[in-house]
Amino acid sequence: MLHTLLFWGLPLLFAGLLVWLRRRLASRKPWLRMIGYVVPGYALLGAYQLLSDRLSALEKAGRIDEETVTVLSEPAVLQQGKTIYDTRCVSCHGAQGEGAVGPNLTDDYWIYGGSIRDIFRTIRHGIPNTPMVAWKHSLTDEEQQAVSNYIYRLRGTNPPNSKPPQGFLYVRGK
């Protein structure tokens, strides 16, 4: 709604302003007429840019991405993450995160980083040339955050038959 108003409203306002200025400035010198057209035009373009930026910021508010994902401990979120993990991740990472085709998710070694942001990024975008697919088109932002938090909480669970460490030691900040 607001984008439609912005898209159609400002050009119509500008057209009306030009008609009004043409009548108002008809008897003025050419350089004064030029200034009379240019200054309001730049003002309207600036207003359009400002409103467009503000609308983009409002649309992004509330979205979860690599920069805004947070560590959550609510049982409902972790249960949702476990449900998603059990349906989509078990075949490669094992039922308890011990690793199968994919790496072990329970130790301190991570190939692409072990922070909540790194885990979220890996889930969202996948890893090219590996079996790890991008889930950004299959899972909502909230679902990606939930499964990221579930995986983040698997650290230190030490399930039996765990795959040996892969990647680099990741030390979490306390």
Results as ranks from 00 to 15, higher is better:
Leu2His: 08
Trp8Ala: 08
Leu10Arg: 01
Pro11Thr: 07
Ala15His: 09
Arg28Ala: 01
Arg28His: 01
Pro30Ala: 00
Leu32Arg: 10
Arg33Thr: 00
Ile35Arg: 10
Pro40Ser: 12
Gly41Ile: 07
Leu45Ala: 15
Leu50Met: 13
Leu50His: 14
Leu50Cys: 06
Ser52Trp: 12
Ala57Pro: 00
Glu59Ala: 08
Glu59Ser: 05
Ala61Arg: 12
Ile64Leu: 02
Asp65Lys: 04
Glu67Arg: 14
Thr68Arg: 07
Thr68Tyr: 00
Thr70Ala: 14
Leu72Ile: 15
Ala76Pro: 04
Gly81Asn: 01
Thr83Ile: 12
Thr87Met: 10
Val90Ser: 08
Val90Gly: 05
Val101Asp: 07
Gly102Ala: 05
Gly102Pro: 03
Pro103Lys: 11
Thr106Cys: 10
Asp107Tyr: 08
Asp108Met: 09
Trp110Glu: 01
Ile111Lys: 13
Tyr112Phe: 12
Gly113His: 09
Gly113Gln: 12
Gly114Thr: 09
Ile116Arg: 11
Arg117Cys: 05
His125Thr: 08
His125Asp: 12
Asn129Gln: 14
Trp135Ile: 04
His137Gly: 11
Ser138Tyr: 15
Leu139Pro: 04
Leu139Ile: 01
Asp141His: 13
Ala146Glu: 03
Ser148Asp: 08
Asn149Tyr: 04
Ile151Phe: 01
Tyr152Thr: 03
Leu154Met: 14
Leu154Ile: 04
Leu154Glu: 02
Arg155Thr: 09
Gly156Met: 12
Thr157His: 08
Asn158Ser: 07
Pro160Asp: 10
Asn161Cys: 01
Ser162Asn: 06
Ser162Leu: 01
Pro165His: 05
Gln166Asp: 10
Phe168Thr: 14
Phe168Ala: 13
Val171Thr: 14
Val171His: 12
